[in-house]
Structures are given as C-alpha cells and as structure tokens.
Simulated scan of single mutants.
Amino acid sequence: MKKLLVLLTLGIALYACSQSGKQGSENNSRASIEQQPSDYDPNRGLGKFDNVEVGDKLDVAMAKDGKVIADLKCASCHKYTDERLVGPGWSGVTAKHQPAWIMNFITNPDPMIDKDPELQAQLEICLVRMPNQNLSDEDARKILEFMRENDGVK
C-alpha cells in the first residue's frame, strides 16, 4: 500500500511538472521580480560566490567531469533540454542566470528558494524543492561548466 501511495504521489508530481505552465510562468516571473526582497541580489543569489569567472571558451575537461557529476546527482530530476522532469530543464540556464547565481543555487538551494521569487514560482509549478546535494565548490563549478557546454559554449 505504501508503494502505491509513493508511486501515486510521484506520478502526480511528474504530471504537474510536465504541464507547460509556460504561459503563466512568464507573467509570474515578471511580476515576482518587482516583489523581490530588498536584501536579495537577483544577479548573484545568496551564498559565498560573488563573482565566478568563466572564460569565453569552454574548459572541456571540467565540462566532462561536470556531466559525470550531473548524471549522478542531477539527472534524476532534470533533463538537459528545456523539458521538465521533476525540476525544470537545464537548456538556457547559463544565458538566463549569472555564473555566481548558478553556483550559489547549486551549493545553497534552500535559502535561495526562500528568497528568490522566480524560484518560488518554479516551486509552485513543480511542487518539489531542490535538495541540497552537498556538492563541493569544485564539483559545482564543474557542473556549471557542463551547463555552459549544454547551452552551446565551445
């Protein structure tokens, strides 16, 4: 009975996240930006990273390592396309967010979800908080480089 309940709950969560919700989410994102708390920096998020330098060219070795980590820690909830799974797809993330924001979110998701209106809107759609994967700064940086590769950086 417990297995059935778990499967049903997971099915509902996946169904909710698979629905487009894109029409309303774009409008919600614009409205929520205006309501950001004054102590929250939407360019860097919350965490220890103020500025993350990334080169114009991709660090191929770092991206390769990042894919291995992402496949292990992230792919059960995220697709590398724009398609939702449990969480949103990764396509276009590095164009939308600054590297410091991405690094802070990867390493410090709970405080950012609590403060970032866009993340709160995403949570309303997907109904599941991103768990803290307890990644090292180095592993988070490798995932960022893989995200850049995924977005077409060469």
Rank of each mutant, 00 (worst) to 15 (best):
K2A: 11
L4R: 14
V6C: 07
V6W: 11
L7F: 05
A16L: 15
Q19E: 10
G21K: 08
Q23E: 14
S25C: 13
E26V: 13
N28I: 11
S29R: 13
S29Q: 14
S32M: 15
I33D: 13
Q36P: 02
S38L: 04
N43P: 04
L46E: 00
L46V: 07
G47H: 01
F49R: 00
D50M: 02
E53Q: 15
G55E: 15
G55N: 07
D56R: 12
D56W: 05
L58S: 05
V60F: 08
A63I: 14
K67W: 04
A70W: 04
A70P: 03
A75I: 05
A75K: 08
C77A: 07
K79Q: 05
K79P: 02
T81A: 06
R84W: 13
L85C: 07
V86R: 02
V86C: 06
V86D: 01
G87A: 15
T94P: 11
H97I: 12
Q98E: 14
M103R: 00
F105Q: 08
T107Q: 01
M112T: 11
I113R: 03
I113N: 03
D114K: 12
D114H: 01
L119G: 09
L127Y: 06
V128M: 00
M130A: 08
M130N: 11
L135I: 08
L135D: 00
D137A: 14
D139A: 09
R141A: 08
I143M: 02
L144F: 08
L144H: 00
L144I: 10
F146C: 05
F146N: 04
D151V: 07
G152K: 10
K154L: 10
